[in-house]
Amino acid sequence: MKPVPERPFISWLPFYTLLQKEIRRFLRVASQTLVTPVITASLYLFIFGATLGERINVVEGFSYAQFVIPGLILMGIINNSFSNVASSLFMSRYLGNIVDLMVTPITPAQFILAYTLAAMIRGLAVGLIVWLISTLFAPLPWAHPFSALLMAALASFLFAQFGIIAAIYANNFDALAMYTNFIILPLIYLGGVFYPISILPPVWSGLSHLNPLFYLIDGFRHALLGTGDLSFATSFCVGLAMASGLFAWAALLIGKSYRLRN
């Protein structure tokens, strides 16, 4: 056996490799990670855009399809950003192969960043495809395109952090599914994807303002349509505060290797 020359240590390579692995992981099962969410969103588009939508009018100047599309795009982004990191990290913990990372020189910051970016890429890819399909049903005015992209990225980042937190705390598959079924889905459905909060009676409207998803959905819709229940700045600031809080929480867990090292 010939001696193998020493290779220099490249500081950023562990991050890049984990990011690459995470992207290839979801591409490998694209039928579950990209196609399924797009089909789900397309069904919503068909029901609310092409059938029922013709008979509903909730916002002056826009069809119901135009109203509902931003919410459906954001729903795809949120669900997929969350489930990408939650399922991958939880599976690594569950199967024990997380030790493969724990013995390497990857830093906590690189660890979080790689999982977050991969989750954002999947979430935003699903959002992009849903938007492309939605153009078959109704065009969007793209009133503030930069703000729309910013809000989409913020929502994606926020739910990637939530996915990390859920993957760390979940003890089994049922517990992980509970985060989706009992937290994310109700918050999305009650957060104004299908109706403007302003049409609700005052009590329900007030309660909806406690729903963090409302700010993300309303902000995103505001950026795309140019109108919303709140100002874009308010929605963005609330979203940023939530994202910062969840990031700090996730960073604390990963920094301490909570439930990753014994």
């Binding site: 220099p8 562990p14 490799t17």
Partner: peptide, 8 residues
């Protein structure tokens, strides 16, 4: 992937 995790 494992080579990359180790920074080489």
């Amino acid at each position: 992937f494992h080579a990359g995790y180790y920074g080489v």
